[in-house]
Design a protein around this nucleic acid. Structure first.
Lengths: 197, 197
DNA sequence: GTCTATATTTGGATAGAC
DNA sequence: GTCTATCCAAATATAGAC
């Protein structure tokens, strides 16, 4: 993970990864038949470690949106993971990248979670046209991703949680719901929580 | 540009670039002493070609924000450039990447342009705390960037212009200004305009 | 289960001919 | 100004010993 985060997939070498893991390059290939399979293993591991937003007991509606802001705040303490996702997600749009399907699926999943949350958050017969909600959901995901790149380049110029919160609450207000209740100063530190990026 | 867009910097080879340009790899290195200098040349060329948002006659305030939405719309017709910026900007956060300074400066410049525009857009003694405006500006830039990655992976799931417009106008409303006047259906096609990404 | 050795490919860069 | 030839380094992957 650290190597992929620091160098991206293409520029990462099995030799460096092997070094950090305390074995040789051939040793790594004994467990993962190829570099691409190793990447798949890393991504899969993260998905299992971060129980993320799966399961039926995940937060819904407003609680979910607040959870996104909390995630942005927690991410400021986890540069490694942020860097890995920022680098790999963008790199995945290049030709024949081994993580392309992974990120396509990931975004599709996130998209429907956020659409659902936005819809529940501003209960009303029809919140607005469905399309509008999808546009807003894409925007929410996009802000979080885009902020990460800016933050990685200039940490002092970016407050990921504040910017995320501002967009979400502005969108909600625009939809006719009240602003994000129980807003920014959320629990400064939560228990064994999980995350999104 | 096409090669860097399709493969990123690290994975792009001088051989492929030379092929497309109709000369040999050694020929390319005759004009650009190294791969990193070639990348610098490409980025510099784009900056000079797209007069972008420089000069004193650039749009200001609301007009500038509307210009951003227009740019998002135009970008949907320029996959190559979008891909190049999306890939390179994220790749630039990796260790020792030759475009790191370029993108740091680029974001700093964009940031101050958007801060200025937001401030002018909602004329009021103090719009709100300065910090809030900076957070909003970062968010605007972030949405545009983040949407590009999603769009490159799944064009049919993302409407870059619509999502961008929604965020900007929601933020403005939140600041107390009216919603983006002369909103979405901007000039479907403008003259020799320029762009942002 | 881990290593050494090596095959194979590819990349960036240099030297020098034409 | 462009090419050929070549160097050197690095990378992925495989074969086979211990």
């Amino acid at each position: 993970m650290e190597t992929f985060a620091a160098r991206g997939y293409n520029n990462a070498s099995l030799a460096e990864i092997a070094d950090r893991a305390g074995l040789t390059q051939a040793g790594v290939l004994h467990y993962f038949r190829s570099k691409a399979l190793l990447l798949a293993g890393v991504l899969e591991l993260r998905d299992r470690t971060d129980i993320e937003l799966q399961g039926p007991e995940r937060p819904r509606g407003l609680a979910f949106l607040r959870h996104l802001v909390d995630t942005a705040r927690r991410n400021a303490e986890r540069e490694g993971i942020v860097r890995m996702y920022a680098v790999l997600s963008a790199e995945s749009v290049t030709e024949d990248h081994p993580a392309q399907e992974y990120f396509r699926d990931r975004y599709a999943g996130l998209r429907s979670l956020v659409v659902e949350a936005l819809t529940e958050a501003c209960e009303r017969g029809e919140v607005r046209e469905d399309l509008d909600v999808r546009d807003a959901a894409n925007a929410v995901i996009a802000v979080m991703d885009g902020l990460q790149v800016q933050w990685l380049l200039s940490p002092d110029s970016v407050d990921m949680a504040a910017s995320t919160e501002r967009v979400i609450s502005a969108l909600l207000a625009d939809f006719g719901a009240g602003p994000l209740p129980g807003p920014l100063p959320g629990p400064p530190d939560e228990a064994p929580a999980s995350d999104t990026e």
